[in-house]
Design a protein around this nucleic acid. Structure first.
Lengths: 224, 224
DNA sequence: TGTACATCAGTGAACGCGCGTTCACTGATGTAC
DNA sequence: TGTACATCAGTGAACGCGCGTTCACTGATGTAC
């Protein structure tokens, strides 16, 4: 939702250059990882001098934070749209996988190795909660009222308040949303990191099989 | 299994210094991530000049590769021991979790964000296969002969040959080993990255619940 | 419509830093007779 | 047991590099009257 109302030519130009800086930054990250991101290199690619970028970002850290924010927002939008489309957990899962495959390093910037000492700003945390909300929405419709609530699931009682802006989800739906998140992330992150290469099966099938454990009422996840 | 047979004092000294370099390297990685590893900083910490380290490692890349190798070997040993102890998947799971919590950045060096273009040497790949073998061992005993073999599991037929040095595991055990890996990694990596903080539940319980989906014959993983 | 001024994008030089790595060299430790 | 030599750990200077960031300044674009 960009401000498309009134905007001066200068504002439009600024937004455009900012966008190009980010785009080049993503290309660098895709090539050399997040630690290989260099302001001077970006400037050179754009035919600018290094200091010129300081008109658009306060520095390297602010640029990276902006990238992380964009990544979260992009994922939050995608998952919300899929969830609202009524396609349930299946739709959300395929949206998630497509989003991850489209740019693995972007996925890892969100869910990969944390850099020690870094703390995301509050608005980014809010986006993470928004993703959780969408997952809960999709989980609620997939969860029957009479699902057994025992063990760990019982411990989730009353947690809807804290997560996701007071989302009123029953424990079984919370449990399902958590399983959705951890199981699909488990498959996706190992797939994107290449840990399945040479094993002779299609990661898409493993992903589908794990998804089935979350949607099929029969399948227990040990087969399927 | 270090060579403890015949060794001259010089050899022992060399091994000791090499070990100290690695230890300092791990400390740096724990503090600033793998990208923050600096040979000169390690040398300074040890009261040596920078070039002195070149007596022990060919350079930065070789040091990092040695760390990755050690991490893999450590994990392979831990999982093999747990698997051989007859405690089954439960024992292997708790060993894995303890290993991960002991040094999160070490875990991420193995299973975290891949650095684009890096390819592990063959002996490291062999260690990864060794881990898979131990997981298969533990999975075989946990898998009943009459487990249903359908869907994705059926596609794993005949894959034992390729993985893990021709391990003769039935498809249901392969499926179980994969689920063990992806599900526990899913929980562990999100936990270590801090994605559960502030959510009001104990990650250990979520880990246990996911483990239960792999061992309990009743629980379908949506509760428990 | 033209003029005076303010805003702002971008430059180029410079700073200090830490990095990995090489090289010729010193001095201590170990080995052979 | 002592002497001559080889091995090897470690030093210090130096190289080239790229990094993020600051600063004073230029020139173009937009605004106000």
């Amino acid at each position: 939702m960009a401000e498309t109302g009134t905007s001066t030519p200068r504002e439009r130009y600024r937004a455009q250059v900012r966008a190009e800086i980010k785009q080049r930054a993503w290309e660098q990250i895709a090539t050399a990882g997040a630690s290989g991101l260099s302001l001077n290199a970006i400037a050179k690619q754009m035919g600018l001098s290094g200091p010129a970028l300081y008109r658009y970002f306060d520095g390297r850290d602010e640029l990276i934070t902006a990238l992380i924010r964009d990544a979260y927002r992009s994922l939050a939008d995608a998952v919300r749209t899929a969830s609202a489309a009524g396609t349930g957990l299946t739709g959300a899962a395929h949206t998630l996988r497509a989003w991850a495959l489209a740019d693995p390093q972007r996925y890892f910037l969100v869910y990969g190795t944390p850099v020690p000492g870094y703390h995301a700003p509050d608005d980014v945390t809010a986006l993470a909660a928004e993703i959780m909300t969408s997952l809960l929405d999709a989980s609620v419709e997939a969860t029957a009222q009479d699902d057994p609530v025992t063990g760990f699931t019982a411990r989730l009682e009353g947690l809807g308040r804290r997560w996701a802006d007071g989302h009123p989800a029953p424990p079984a739906a919370l449990r399902r949303a958590l399983a959705f998140w951890t199981r699909l992330h488990g498959v996706l992150s190992l797939e994107l990191a290449g840990h399945f290469t040479g094993m002779g099966f299609d990661p898409a099938h493993l992903f589908a099989a794990e998804l089935a454990t979350l949607t099929d009422r029969e399948d227990d996840g040990r087969s399927g």
